[in-house]
């Protein structure tokens, strides 16, 4: 559902991520057994951010190996 009726829609300079977001969300939705809520996904983002912080002086690939240790 769009936030505004068509005649009032405008170019939103802060919403350039919407198209890509919708595409990713749609792709996730199409996976039959995907049951996570959007709020859980925000938590995953916080977690990834935390991993990046913990690994800030290391090479990026270490993040992934660290992720395996944590999980």
């Amino acid at each position: 559902m769009a936030k505004l009726p068509k005649e009032y829609q405008f170019v939103d300079l802060s919403d350039y991520g919407r198209g890509a977001a919708r595409f990713i969300a749609q792709s996730l939705r199409e996976r039959q057994n995907y049951t996570n809520s959007s709020n859980n996904m925000v938590c995953y983002f916080w977690f990834v951010g935390y991993c990046l912080y913990v690994n800030r002086f290391l090479h990026c690939s270490w993040v992934l190996s660290d992720f395996e240790v944590y999980s």
Binding site: G17, A21, R22, I24, A25, L28, S38, V42
Partner: peptide, 12 residues
Amino acid sequence: MPLMESFSRIKK
């Protein structure tokens, strides 16, 4: 976060 919003909109 547009991704989360899109996701909950798609899931209605």
